[in-house]
Amino acid sequence: METTLSSLKEKYEAARVENPKARIRDIARLLGSSEAQLLATGIGETVTLLEGDFREFLKEVNTMGRVMALTRNDDCVHERKGVYNNVSFDSPHVGLVLDPDIDLRLFMMGWKYGFAVNENDRFSFQFFDKSGEAVHKIYLTDDSNKEAYEALKAKYTAADQQLEITTEAYPPTPAEKPDSEIDVAGFQEGWRNITDTHQFFGILKKFGVSRTQGLRLAPEGFVQEVSNEAVETVLQKASETKAPIMIFVGNRGCIQIHTGEVNRLVRTGPWFNVLDPDLNVHLRTEAIAKTYVVKKPSEAGIVTALEVFDKNGELIIQLFGKRKPGIPELESWREVVKTVADF
């Protein structure tokens, strides 16, 4: 193990010299490794391995005060500043952080490894799934309590800092059933009878339909495929009109949500960015393969979303109008959506 770790460390350091602007996630792909394994090469120097119940850890993050939460997938990064208030778990695996600023849905079965990291005096806690991919990161800001960070790090430091970081790939996504094997009429009826948008996943599961297949088989008037530039158009319009929106970005272990306005929008190469004081979103638009405007019924009327997918049918980002359960969708959001869809 020592030799393997030492060899990986050398390769990682060489790759960083050759690719000074590359992120650790990209270097991991380049080396056929994982981000967690590359990070582990710094244990004993800039990295400390954590252990314990990460649910309890999350309940103590508020001691650090204002921090920056980061959740990402391959093609979108969501960074939001705030305090981790109101952390709760309905079951051993599913939890929430419910605060106007830090708003998370937690799927703890996806959390395997945790580290405390010092990147040139930029301090963070970083969590990874069994495949070694990052599920969530928490960075200190200038307003954070550094003493609380150190206390939390000490409390959850693993006794064995030599633990081997092993990774396990997820099984491939099952192939879609042919449309001819789907009870399309039943699926469409189920969609029309949704009373809460959270029921949608259950409808997909019940009829054995993938998400993008479900959008293709939707009842008439509920889905419209739109241009892959629609997400930029919608964000621009929301910015111009000051329409409060919700931005969802997630992975297997966490979904992170921003609710509020977006203001400063900037294009940098392949990335389209929201660069506001408390919110940064970085979207790799060249990865977008399909974009849909999707309508779902609720007790308070229709809820409209912009859903953006990659070539594998994985959700990259979702946009909604700002809303609360039981309250009708904002007309300002519907006006924004009209810039890309005509139904």
Rank of each mutant, 00 (worst) to 15 (best):
S180E: 14
G326N: 09
F89I: 05
S332G: 01
S210M: 11
A116N: 07
K338Y: 02
K153V: 06
P174I: 02
V266S: 07
V274E: 03
I165N: 01
L38A: 03
D74G: 13
A148D: 09
I138P: 01
V336G: 01
W111P: 01
E18K: 15
L38E: 11
P219H: 07
V226P: 02
T212F: 10
R252V: 12
L30S: 13
G221L: 11
N85M: 07
V94G: 06
L140V: 11
L204V: 02
I194C: 07
G301I: 02
V231G: 00
M246P: 01
N62F: 12
N228Q: 11
K9R: 15
Y113V: 06
E314K: 13
D196E: 11
P100H: 00
N86L: 07
R55E: 09
R29D: 13
A341L: 04
F128R: 03
E56K: 12
A287D: 12
D53W: 06
N120W: 06
H136L: 04
T195L: 11
P172F: 01
P20N: 01
T339A: 15
L315D: 03
G65A: 05
L96D: 06
V281M: 15
E286S: 15
F200G: 04
T166L: 14
G313R: 06
G44N: 08
Q318K: 14
E133T: 14
A40E: 03
F222Y: 15
P325N: 10
L163C: 06
K153H: 03
R211D: 03
M246N: 04
L217A: 05
V226I: 11
Q162V: 05
R23D: 12
